[in-house]
Amino acid sequence: MDITRLIITAVGGQGNLLSSKVLGEAALLSDIPVRMSEIHGMAQRGGVVESALLFGDVKSTIISDGEADVLVSFEPAEALRAMNKCKSETVVITNLAPLPPFTVTIGSGAYPDIDKLQDLISSKVSRLIAFDAVALSKEAGNIMAVNMVLLGALAQTGILPLTVENIKTAIKTRTKKTFVETNLKAFDLGYSEAEKQN
């Protein structure tokens, strides 16, 4: 079975771990071997949270630099920061709504220009899907559903060995009941956005 390597990067509190859990559960439903890893601990203190997900016949739970097939970033500058994980064939999906780190506020760093950031990423990888996932999550009725919007876009690429149906089932069983409806809506909005950008 082919191996697919996915990196999800986000800022603590954006719901990265839940999206990994949904994909893991979808893999379990699809009978696809999956291994994942993540770094916990500082997430709630505003740091970066990076998850690695490996689908298929593989024993490693982490992804080396230059070896991700897909990179999903919940924040534009974090997409740029995680570019070391990409190769020229990588597909990058990123939210474009910035969450400037505190270091920018205190003047010890400048936030990258969003247009230039997109040009840079597209010039280095095979495909970039970039859009304001926060706007879409608001449209879905839950500003916290950025993770689901991005899962929708990821599903649209068809890179993961998972069906849309199984991911949706995992969203139904693994996310809080009160949010299932808005989560599914967010997922669909992300899916159509990626379709538009194809």
Binding site: V11, G12, M42, Q44, R45, G46, G47, V48, D65, G66, E67, A77, E78, L80, R81, M83, N84, C86, K87, S88, P100, P101, F102, T103, V104, S108, G109, A110, Y111, P112, K116, L120, K124, V125
Partner: peptide
């Protein structure tokens, strides 16, 4: 043969995001 990694030398410095007291 190592994987063909894109040249990242033109990526500007990205502001750090260290963990901070809440």
């Amino acid at each position: 043969k190592a994987i063909d990694k894109p040249d990242l030398t033109d990526i500007p410095e990205i502001p750090q995001r260290p963990p901070n007291l809440c």
